[in-house]
Design a protein around this nucleic acid. Structure first.
Lengths: 212, 212
DNA sequence: GGCTTCGGTGTCACCGAGTGTCAAGACGCG
DNA sequence: CGCGTCTTGACACTCGGTGACACCGAAGCC
């Protein structure tokens, strides 16, 4: 963070940065408007950019791809899970810790319902976006694996447990997300998460029979 | 399978079909040659097509995308898993049935090692291809979920178990595949699969506490 | 105030993936 | 031989994405 000098000016963010944020917002808003209305493939990047009042080139200065505009919402989710796990007490059972880590973002989704729901539905129903989500989950799983390994003092190269536990947690995450989306927001994410982890707990908490 | 008429001609496939197969083989071979040598992004579809002696347009008549050439190998794997599960005795414990279903293709991979290994490594290490693999797994999971539901007489809409069990099985699949790839084929897929399912078994076989 | 510097922007040219179209050739059949 | 059918190559086109360059406006320094 380059805080050039002492900042007599008020906010910690410069004018330029606020302008950037403005463009991001404008682009995001235009994208959602068009994508939810017409569907993912029927909208070109040019459409979005023009609608937001900038050029196509500028769009790509802010977003890596067309998918990125939508999927960016999920980036926070992933780091949320990892940090959520790191924040749990070290002696907590894995099932409880993972349940809490996965459940927090999910509950957060369920709260401010409408907006989040429409995003999730758009993602799950659009193949290209769904694929992006899967990529993200793949990365999250790696991070969770790492976090679990240090938490339990296991070696990622010899023990399968961290990898499998992370995969199970994200399986639960995906299942809950899908149910919630399919129920159009009627189902309660927290309750679903509880049920999912009730199923997974026996394996998550079993003493590791895995060490060679 | 259209066996048009009585087949006085020898093989069940017509000349046209054999020609098609020839093009497919040629294209596939050229693709592997170039992709493994130069990497995925450094090879254009034109390169592959020209190398195989056909036009770019023809390439797309045989393969849906550049990724498709490589990933097509995996299609069989997925159906193999589902059919493998369907073939297991109905009274077998889920953990055992799934272990067998997932283990078969994996073992098959491990056997004829070199070729399969290089494909898997190429896929796992190339982001675009890895993404495709994830998409496939996503579909496999749906199919496995369905198969498990009918097998156990559960309803996919109310019970989470089939979905979670399918996810766990594929988590194991992915973990084994990755280990095997990273070990350059030294690790034994069957042994890895056994270890993975030893971890998952408690949840897979636990009586469902899930029904509302 | 003039000056430069620098980040953000638009324009344009470009590449590669993927698709529609059409005309031409190869094959099967009467 | 001539007639449909199937496959192919050539071409043009769209769209996602990138590189190069010129421009402008907001600081910074004198």
């Amino acid at each position: 963070m380059p805080y050039h000098h002492d900042m007599t000016s008020r906010p910690a963010v410069s004018l330029a940065q606020r302008k950037r944020q403005l463009v991001v917002d404008e682009l995001t808003e235009a994208a959602f408007q068009l994508l939810t209305a017409r569907g993912f493939d029927a909208v070109t990047v040019d459409d979005i950019a023009t609608d937001a009042g900038v050029s196509k080139r500028t769009f790509f200065r802010y977003f890596a791809s067309k998918e990125d505009v939508v999927v960016r919402f999920l980036a926070d989710l992933g780091t949320g899970i990892r940090e959520g796990l790191a924040a749990r007490p070290a002696d907590e059972r894995p099932s409880a810790a993972l349940r809490a880590a996965v459940g927090a973002p999910l509950a957060h989704c369920g709260d401010r319902g409408d907006r989040a729901l429409r995003v999730v539905q758009l993602i799950l129903r659009t193949p290209a976006l769904r694929a992006r989500l899967l990529e993200h989950q793949d990365r999250w799983r790696d991070e969770l694996t790492e976090e679990l390994a240090v938490r339990l003092g296991l070696d990622t190269r010899t023990d399968l447990y961290p990898r499998l536990a992370a995969g199970m947690a994200l399986t639960a995450f995906g299942a809950v997300l899908e149910r919630w989306s399919e129920s159009d927001g009627t189902a309660d994410p927290t309750a679903l998460t509880d049920r999912a982890f009730a199923v997974l707990a026996p394996s998550l908490d079993a003493p590791s029979l895995d060490t060679v």
